[in-house]
Design a protein around this nucleic acid. Structure first.
Lengths: 355, 355
DNA sequence: ATTTTTATCGTGTGCGCACACGAAATCAAT
DNA sequence: ATTGATTTCGTGTGCGCACACGATAAAAAT
């Protein structure tokens, strides 16, 4: 690995001049600049990132705004862990990461947390744009302050975000349909259980449903797809009543599609029923879902690698701040098919980074 | 992040002394050592890896020995790319990576490449122990020279290797069986096509078959499993003859299991046949397999993340050499289920590292 | 011709750490 | 008490780079 000093010697200039050329700083005559560029190319010079980050005294702050997690809704635990892992890694590079959380059901807490976030004077922001209208306000502020921002998990459009880190929800629903078809025979029926389109996550979940439906349309399959809306997954009485009556009426239902992370609840509620247990396809590897999968109550889970998503969001932004290299506009995580047989044991935190 | 110099000031000693304590070097009285250790703990001191690797003048060489790849057998392309990616990353840390390849069918080239490899005086070795007997000789040499080594992709036992990076072949075969079962009805038959147990890869492939068979035994399913041995996958005449006659005789065969990366050849050979195309389950995302998957000729591919495997083998070894932190004894990559619908577009080189 | 401005370049310092070298202090041997 | 051996510690340098500062040379203005 050739160094700046060596390049300088070859070009009969000082290291400072080479530095200027490398970073396109002014103060170098075009003649010598070209000569140096030539030598740099010839020797395939690459800056030593290690030395660079040691020498760079500039410090950055990245602020992250994401929903909090609890026992009932565990999904956001994994992205947070990915974010924290990334935080450890970028620390040595002079990047500090501060996280702020909000209540998924409260636009007010979303905005309030954002206000707090702003006070840290971040040079970059990662956010989960849960609320459409409010997000418009926030991004307006960020744009005015010229703070670059990344959307995590929810792909809102028309916001001049630096990039989106998440999954292709439509495709994942499409895949779910394919798997469902593999399980079913021609005349079997399907049940799609979705929660009332509440404030959050509307995008992802409705896109999954669209993808699912699209597959069956495209393949010209005519399995009947019953759809049911559940207001509160945990309202056992109403829930069981609704589901049970439907399943008893429609005995042809052989597969259930749950386009959110609460498949385990369905699993719980239908386990007592008589007759063959239907195939169940859900999303996300939460603890609850894992258990239901292991117990054979869920057939497939589709995972979106939330840990990696969290990780990538801050690592990409750090990279952008440090080296001005813009990330791809979409960083899509692979759509993973998880069964009882390939469920990763332990948390799936393939540590991404060296060391 | 507190620095050595600051610790030194707090302890009324010089930075050199703190350095000695941190690295357990001799030359410090027990009294002051304890005092310093106390302060280190109080302030949760962590060495700045960035500065450390810049200061460390010690250079390491890692040598990698793996099978070469060609048009016919593309599998080893991906691990190699992972290795090269890791090479770029660890370069800044003072680790050089040199790769050596051999012919998968020639134990002689295996040994010959190893001889060349030794001449680079590596401090660590990554190798794919394709040949059992010869490997015993090689590891004997490495042990005598006290060079740590890692097995990649093939898990030989009894070799005092530092660790194994690869997949759980038994489990992946087991998973293949589960998927097969999902596709089939009760009385359908299965065909397992495997190449003649030649010299290489015996381990992985036979373990996949064992896993596959074990699933059906365990689940007490009695789908008949026809087994066929093919000497040369590309010997079209013999091949088609064998397969075709079998498929025509056994019309109940509805699923084909190919426990190696050559499912695409089967796909090619059976496409002309009359009647319904059977379900086909194979391994590894090679270009050929991808195409067959997209064309709908392969139902499932099971992937072992070869890029990541290559990457992890050298990153783990580098970490060990640099910081003396031994890796886990087994680094198992997730067993991925790939269908037409979730095939990653482009190469799946989720760049693992920052930056 | 002299001064001022500007373009062009070299020098020096420090980031946090590893490590060689040597100084001081302590101890042992005579 | 003197010398020698040994333990204990401080100092200095360099890793490769960024960047501030200042020096020199060239151009422009007087």
């Amino acid at each position: 690995m050739i160094t700046i000093k060596e390049i300088a010697k070859l070009a009969n200039v000082s290291p400072g001049t080479v530095d200027r050329v490398i970073h396109n700083r002014k103060g170098v005559s075009e003649k010598t600049a070209q000569r140096i560029r030539q030598i740099l190319k010839e020797h395939d010079f690459k800056v030593n990132r290690i030395a660079q980050s040691l020498a760079m005294k500039k410090k950055y702050t990245i602020a992250v705004l994401l929903p909090n997690h609890d026992e009932e809704n565990q999904f956001w635990k994994n992205p947070l862990e990915g974010i924290q892992k990334a935080k450890e890694e970028v620390m040595s590079f002079g990047v500090d990461v501060k996280t702020f959380s909000f209540d998924q059901k409260s636009p007010k807490s979303y905005v309030a947390s954002f206000e707090l976030l702003l006070k840290t004077n971040p040079q970059g922001v990662v956010l989960v744009p849960t609320f459409k209208k409010e997000t418009k306000e926030l991004t307006k502020v960020l744009l005015k302050k010229e703070i670059p921002f990344i959307f995590l998990n929810i792909a809102l459009t028309g916001h001049e975000n630096l990039c989106f880190v998440g999954q292709d929800s439509f495709k994942s629903g499409y895949l779910a349909a394919k798997l469902m078809q593999l399980c079913l025979n021609e005349n079997d029926h399907i049940l799609t259980v979705h929660s009332r389109p509440n404030l959050s996550n509307v995008n992802n979940i409705s896109q999954r449903i669209e993808g699912f439906d699209h597959y069956f349309k495209e393949q010209k399959l005519n399995n009947t797809n019953h759809k049911i809306e559940v207001e509160d997954f945990w309202d056992a009485e109403k829930f069981t009543e609704k589901i049970a009556s439907l399943l008893q009426k429609q005995t042809k239902i052989k597969g259930i599609f749950v386009p959110n992370s609460r498949a385990h609840i369905i699993a719980k509620h239908i386990e007592g029923m008589r007759g063959r247990i239907p195939y169940l396809i859900g999303f996300d590897i939460t603890d609850h879902n894992s258990r239901a999968l292991i117990d054979g109550k869920i057939t497939f889970l589709i995972s979106q690698k939330p840990f990696q998503q969290g990780y990538r969001s801050v690592s990409s932004l750090s990279k952008f701040l440090l080296y001005k290299t813009p990330p791809q506009s979409e960083i899509l995580s692979p759509i993973e098919i998880i069964t009882k047989e390939n469920l990763p044991n332990g948390q799936q935190k393939e540590y991404a980074i060296f060391p």
